[in-house]
Design a protein around this nucleic acid. Structure first.
Lengths: 201, 201
DNA sequence: CGTGACTGTTAATGAGCGTTAACCATTTCC
DNA sequence: GGAAATGGTTAACGCTCATTAACAGTCACG
């Protein structure tokens, strides 16, 4: 489990650049030649590493959903003795890290899902669903006033809030990563708390 | 200003169906034949109403941003005597109405902007910017603790929250429009309030 | 040495698709 | 009543683009 210091493999370079390009101009908006050029090889050379353009998108999207889910599961597992509230904070923190560090992937995540083969799309959706349900459980422990459907809607909405980072001005204009992360975190908690205020209206 | 009861014109049918299709499968993912079929005419017949496929997208996106902005301006103008807090509630309500009633447009709004001609994209961005600034002003009146950059980030994030409706399960599974709107409204206010808590940390 | 396995290259193929051309029915209106 | 205007049609063009073919350099290793 050592953190890898190796040079990135060609496959990884391709995936990274493809993610950036897909996020910028959409799956159909990017040609294979362009992806190839981004890693210094040309067009069809990509086919030595992937069976096709679709496969790159599939691997990206499955990878995203998978990493989000396993990350959340890990946080949950490592949390013996912590309060539900602390666990929720940990989930939020993990999601924010992801949103801030992998903006292109976040963008792809809910933009290009429909371009996948049926089987891949099903897989991604299943991973997403598990991730959501995991959040819903924790959220309902922290905010018991939330009925399950309400909690699910609230979770989706908070994802929308956290995933808004791509719209927050390109890199330079942001008030600094830590500040932004803290702001998003507070807002997420505030949104959940306000959601719970329902039953008492 | 009578609410129109007329049958929708062909142009409007086309725009509506195009919006739905673009939102579902992306601008590049939809063919003109398909758009034509959706309104009962076939492929090239569209060119009697629009100079090209791009023009449909442009009109849709400019229309969205324009309606959001003018709606917000109207609410502001009609609000003499109201408190800033009431005005903010009105802005939120307007945005939620839009998000719930025109889901496809919301989706397009931040998904296909890059496919526009430079001039159109500039126009749309300008309208968006005005809309954001208008919110920022009102938000800062209600939550004076918010510095301007923070307020702007918060506004973007709340847009992310409100625009999450497309992800809230297709139509049937929603707990009812009024309930959903109320939930989103509460969460938005809660998020802003929590954002303000910053300077006092 | 030499024979695969790898990783590239360029050229060709073939499908999809936006757009234009050429043509036609219907309505409007002097 | 006839000429525009209007809103369709189908067929053809041309371009983009993913994918495949055919070929070649490099390195590991028996």
């Amino acid at each position: 489990m050592a953190t890898r210091t190796d040079a990135p493999t060609r496959r990884e370079q391709i995936l990274k650049e493809a993610a950036r390009l897909f996020a910028d101009r959409g799956f159909h908006g990017v040609g294979v030649d362009e992806i190839g050029a981004a890693v210094g090889i040309s067009g069809p050379g990509l086919y030595r590493h992937f069976p096709g353009k679709d496969a790159m998108l599939a691997e990206l999207l499955v990878g995203i959903s998978g990493r989000l889910l396993t990350g959340a599961k890990r946080r949950l597992a490592e949390a013996d003795g912590e309060t539900s509230s602390q666990i929720l904070d940990s989930l939020i923190e993990g999601h924010i890290d992801f949103a801030l560090d992998d903006r292109p992937l976040i963008t792809l995540h809910d933009r290009e899902l429909d371009r996948l083969r049926d089987s891949d799309r099903k897989l991604v959706r299943q991973l997403q669903r598990q991730y959501v349900e995991l959040w819903v459980q924790v959220v309902r422990e922290v905010y018991p006033g939330l009925a399950e459907p309400t909690a699910r809607s609230a979770v989706h909405s908070v994802f929308g809030l956290l995933n808004s980072t791509p719209h927050l001005g390109r890199a330079g204009t942001l008030p600094g990563r830590g500040t932004t992360a803290a702001l998003l975190h507070r807002m997420a908690r505030g949104a959940f708390a306000a959601a719970e205020a329902e039953s008492r209206a």
